[in-house]
Design a protein around this nucleic acid. Sequence first.
DNA 1: GCGACAG
DNA 2: ATCTTGTCGC
Length: 225
Amino acid sequence: MNPLLPDPALPRDLSALAALQRELASRVIREDRFPDPLRLLGGLDCAAPRRDGKTFLVAAAVVLRAEDLTPVEQVTATLPAPFPYIPGFLSFRELPALLEAAGRLRHVPDLWLVDGAGIAHPRRLGLAAHFGAALDVPSIGVAKSRLMGTYQEPGWERGSASPLWDRGEALGWVLRSRRGVKPLFVSPGHRVSLTGSLLWTLRACGRCRLPEPTRLADRLSKTPG
DNA sequence: GCGACAG
DNA sequence: ATCTTGTCGC
């Protein structure tokens, strides 16, 4: 492709999408509003394999028993990637595939853990928050790296966490899910509080760095069939 | 203008 | 995210 010309596959107007993000973000509920006790946990993630020079998005949705983190169901959905990754606009690229996968599940999770940011986003609407707001379901964003925000390095022990700040607002946590590993960037999505996002993410962590819902979805997205 | 930047 | 060999640790 001619590098001097704009990519026709790119969104027409990013400022319009940004405005939509602000609008949806204003509807995001930052309080715990989900069943207690929690029965089922959902996990979502996407892989982006290239076939014949074209990029596809393989979304994976999994369901686990909250009680013991036992796998209950898992499905996938593959769609053509609409446009390249653009920092701050990831949800417009991956949400369609994630919604398709989530819709194929027979079980309905009480709380979703999504690989990506929650409200710890420039316009407070990361992938997890967008997903939750779109379906009005409880969600938490569990990212493997930082999108934005400042923080102090958390302690070395499992469970050690530091607030993630932006413009004088605590939007999430930098969590050491396992002793000595690279920390996770956790933030509330929809219908989950700041403390709730931290507690439930840590509770969903088994023996690995990533919480089980996200870890299983990640593995499935990279190994469909 | 320059650097940063989920997946 | 993907590309990609060997390598360190439980």
